[in-house]
Nucleic acid binder design. Structure first.
Lengths: 130, 130
DNA sequence: GAATTATCTTAGAACATTCTAAGATAATAA
DNA sequence: TTATTATCTTAGAATGTTCTAAGATAATTC
């Protein structure tokens, strides 16, 4: 194991832009975004998430551990299973806003391409995958 | 369980959770968070940002380039200077929501420590660095 | 044109994250 | 106790990101 780096403060003296960056970085992985989306309606076990994500137990656990350590998720044990849930509902707002921004970007891209590549149909608006 | 290999299209069929992750990952660096905060009120030149961030021209440019490539920033040239601005105002909403979530987390941490480490004063609410 | 100022680009080193494989732990059931 | 299922942990390899140093380009001024 490599030598432990600078022990960063965990208290309130850490500049907020650093905390924000750490927070966003944690959202910066497809599997972790999907975990949040899967936990939108209700809590789920590690096994559920693992199956839905198509990951192995190790990878799933590592992602969940990172998200819980950061305070994004909470968990409870029930028998041999562990249920995870999102701690702060405003987290979903974050995902929603990001989606809106990305949707605007995609629409803009399509508009630019429109002149070269006219729409095949205007019967229904184009769908994007969720 | 063997990890399922995910498809990697580059066009508009890219799954949205991947786009979201890319988007959040870009927000996941202290310098880039600060750039956004600095651009909250008005556009700024690379030199302005460079001075405010305490980076060199190379690093500053690299961060800005990454943010522009992702569609987070826009730029215009005026003489030898280049002005950068945030493209979508909803980006600030993202920062605001993140701040709220983090603030709640910090307050919760303080409450837990409260028993051991009582508040020094209740005359004014505790401030955090911006 | 040459000099100046501002910004950008590149390559590789340094550093950080993610993946993989193997095994450890925890709760329960047989 | 042993077996079983579910979850977690660890180490190191693979991959990705950021930093540093050097120089390239672009617009302007002299």
């Amino acid at each position: 194991m490599p030598a432990a780096p600078e022990p960063r403060p965990v208290d309130g003296t850490e500049p907020i832009y650093r905390l924000k960056a750490d927070f966003f970085r944690l959202l910066g992985h497809p599997a972790r975004v999907r975990v949040l989306e899967l936990l939108r309606e209700h809590e789920r076990t590690v096994g559920d998430l693992q199956a839905a994500l198509g990951l192995d137990s190790s990878g799933t656990s590592q992602h969940l551990t990172a998200m819980r350590r950061q305070g994004l998720l909470e968990s409870r044990r029930a028998g041999t299973s562990v249920y995870y849930r999102v701690k702060d509902p405003r987290t979903f707002q974050l995902l929603e806003t990001a989606k809106q921004i990305l949707t605007s970007q995609l629409e803009e891209t399509r508009d630019l391409l429109g002149g070269l590549n006219p729409p095949q149909s205007d019967a229904a608006p184009a769908r994007t995958r969720s």
